[in-house]
């Protein structure tokens, strides 16, 4: 099943405009089951916009996105031919740069809210799975803590557990270590690597080039709203072709 090459996510001619500004100029992209896609590029290149289109947090101006063969719609409810955002976001999880944990809920409450409210799971079932996930991210002892008592790295690990609680098919990571102190980055990357090893399909917008080289099987370099280069980590990160990419990568050490 891991070698099944049916695209899970297909992006065709994706354009995103904010008023007169065209942030994504025409993106074509396929994500296959088990793919770990690294998305790199300079500020303003459209990386966040692209990944946010994948779970319809941004609505494409033009173009189509298909999940498991079905077109995405911007309505909440699904119809016969289209997947609505409600259903889409149950299958595609997202972790944000600034964590966005609910401050009025405990760590456990943060993780179980989705399963209980959206998944209609019972308190017991939701709590059990939440404890399981907390164990997987190494925070079993923090179940009753409030987010304000956690470090950045711990908050982000909770955020990952919260996204996983919905049992998504795809995980999207939007610069999840960019807001962390350097010494806290490693613990978060470790969790992501574990997910990757377990076969989770994912797309990561990241500046951690070494990490991308380590876990990704594909990398795309986004520049000025287009995919300027694309290939394996070896092709894109180790042996970049364009001058633009070479200049971009030279800013990162290692």
């Amino acid at each position: 099943m891991n070698n099944d090459n049916t695209p899970v996510l297909t992006v065709n001619g994706l354009v995103k405009r904010y008023g007169a500004i065209e942030v994504l100029k025409s993106i074509d992209l396929d994500l296959v089951k088990g793919d770990i896609l690294g998305i790199i590029g300079p500020s303003g290149s459209g990386k966040s916009t692209l990944i946010r289109c994948l779970n319809m947090m941004e609505t494409p101006t033009e173009g189509t996105i298909k999940l498991q063969g079905k077109k995405l719609s911007d309505k909440f409810k699904s119809s016969k031919n289209e997947i609505g955002v409600g259903e889409l976001r149950r299958k595609v999880g997202m972790v944000f740069q600034h964590f966005n944990l609910y401050p009025h809920k405990t760590v456990l409450g943060n993780i179980t809210m989705g399963p209980k409210v959206v998944g209609k799971k019972s308190e017991q079932e939701a709590n059990e799975y939440a404890h399981d996930l907390l164990g997987q991210v190494g925070l079993s002892d923090k179940a009753d803590a409030y987010p304000s008592h956690l470090s950045g790295g711990q908050k982000q690990r909770v955020a990952i557990a919260r996204a996983l609680a919905m049992k998504p098919d795809i995980m999207l990571f939007d610069e999840v270590t960019s807001a962390l102190d350097p010494e806290l980055v490693g613990e978060v990357l470790q969790v992501i690597k574990k997910l990757a090893d377990e076969g989770m399909t994912m797309a990561l917008v990241t500046h951690e080039m070494a990490f991308a080289a380590e876990i990704a099987n594909r990398v795309i370099f986004l520049d000025g709203g287009v995919i300027a280069e694309s290939g394996t980590p070896d092709q894109v990160l180790i042996n970049p072709e364009s001058e633009r990419l070479k200049t971009f990568l030279s800013r990162f050490h290692g």
Binding site: R90, M94, N100, M113, G114, M166
Partner: peptide
């Protein structure tokens, strides 16, 4: 956004 991202 966090709530929306889990399908609420």
């Amino acid at each position: 956004e966090a709530g929306a991202a889990v399908g609420m």
